[in-house]
Computed example of a mutant assay.
Amino acid sequence: MDPQTTHLLYLHGFRSSPRSTKARLVAKHVARQHPNLEWWCPQLPPSPHDAIDMVMKGIAHWPRKSMAVIGSSLGGFYATYVAGMTRCRAVLLNPAVHPARDLTRYIGSQTTWHDPSEHFYFQPEFIQELRAMEIGALTRPERLFAIIAKGDEALDWHEMSARYPDSRIKLLEGGDHALSDFEKAHLGDVMAFINPVV
């Protein structure tokens, strides 16, 4: 039996931030229902190498048996890497499966979703950084839970489902990439899987 989660990491997606709707909803739920839970939702730098380096250093002293990670889109790809390295529980929300392939068309100047005045440059070398983070089959697939929407307009649900064949999957008939019904339809399932301390 797994111990209750004492430390929770949230990793946002490409062009996103801790101000994303889902990140804020989870943060609000944690503050209200699980005040003893250590919560960290960092602003990830554009470089995948720098992002995962910051994350792994930030969780270096977290207890592996009682930590968990939630990742959305590109953050789901990062969360898969974190779970592979730590064997912690992970929830993946429409996770990116082949970002090295899919993000090549975004090389160049980009803006963030939540503040179009914020610009960053997605460098060509970031593609190789993503390739370097691709891991094979997961050693503890039962510790992952993926919520995947067939209606995702950005990612292919067939690829997402095929990536996690031995993990728990909640496959939505419709939905969208943002999981617009996250609070009402999915937040409870996410927190139940993570099983945080009260």
Results as ranks from 00 to 15, higher is better:
Met160Ala: 07
Leu171Ile: 04
Asp156Gly: 04
Leu172Phe: 10
Tyr164Cys: 09
Pro165Ile: 00
Gly175Ala: 03
His177Thr: 01
Glu183His: 15
Asp156Met: 08
Asp166Tyr: 15
Arg163Cys: 00
Met160Ser: 09
Asp181Pro: 12
Arg163Tyr: 09
Ala154Asp: 11
Asp166Trp: 15
Ser180Pro: 07
Met160Asn: 12
Glu159Tyr: 00
Tyr164Pro: 00
Tyr164Asp: 11
Gly175Pro: 07
Arg163Leu: 05
Met160Arg: 13
Glu183Lys: 14
Glu183Asn: 10
Ser167Ile: 15
His158Ile: 08
Lys184His: 09
Gly175Trp: 00
Gly175Ile: 06
Arg168Gln: 07
Trp157Met: 03
Gly174Lys: 05
Leu172Cys: 01
Asp176Ala: 09
His158Asp: 05
Ile169Met: 13
Ala162Thr: 08
Leu179Met: 03
Arg163Ser: 04
Phe182Asp: 13
His158Phe: 06
Ala154Ile: 15
Ala178Ser: 10
Leu171Thr: 08
Phe182Asn: 04
Asp176Ile: 00
Asp156Cys: 04
Met160Lys: 11
Pro165Thr: 03
Gly174Ser: 10
Met160Gly: 08
Arg163Phe: 06
His158Gly: 03
Phe182Val: 12
Asp166Phe: 14
His186Gln: 06
Leu179Phe: 09
Ala154Trp: 00
Ile169Ser: 10
Lys184Ala: 07
Glu183Arg: 06
Leu155Asn: 15
Leu171Val: 10
Glu183Asp: 13
Glu173Met: 03
Ala162Tyr: 03
Phe182Ala: 04
Glu159Asn: 02
Trp157Ile: 01
Ser167Thr: 15
Asp181Ser: 14
Tyr164Gln: 04
His177Lys: 04
Gly174Glu: 06
His186Trp: 07
Glu153Pro: 03
Tyr164Phe: 10
Pro165Leu: 15
Leu171Lys: 05
Asp166Glu: 15
Asp166His: 04
His158Ser: 06
Leu179Glu: 11
Pro165Ala: 05
Pro165Lys: 00
Ile169Glu: 12
Ile169Val: 13
Gly174Tyr: 04
Lys170Leu: 14
Ser167His: 10
Asp176Glu: 08
Glu153Val: 05
Met160Ile: 02
Gly175Val: 02
Pro165Glu: 01
Leu179Trp: 03
Met160Gln: 10
Ile169His: 09
His158Leu: 15
Pro165Arg: 09
Ser167Arg: 07
Asp166Lys: 15
Asp166Leu: 04
Met160Thr: 13
His186Gly: 06
Asp176Met: 01
His158Arg: 09
Met160Pro: 02
Leu172Arg: 04
Glu153Lys: 02
Asp176Pro: 11
Arg163Thr: 08
His186Tyr: 14
Leu172Asn: 05
Lys170Trp: 14
His186Ser: 14
Glu153Gln: 08
Asp181His: 13
Lys170Met: 07
His186Ala: 08
Ala154Phe: 11
Lys184Met: 11
Ser180Phe: 01
Glu183Met: 09
Arg168Ile: 09
Ala178Thr: 08
Ala178Gly: 14
Trp157Gln: 07
Ile169Pro: 06
Glu159Val: 07
Lys184Phe: 14
Lys170Ser: 11
Ser180Trp: 00
Gly174Trp: 07
Asp156Lys: 12
Gly175His: 05
Glu153Gly: 02
Leu179Ile: 12
Asp176Asn: 02
Glu183Gln: 14
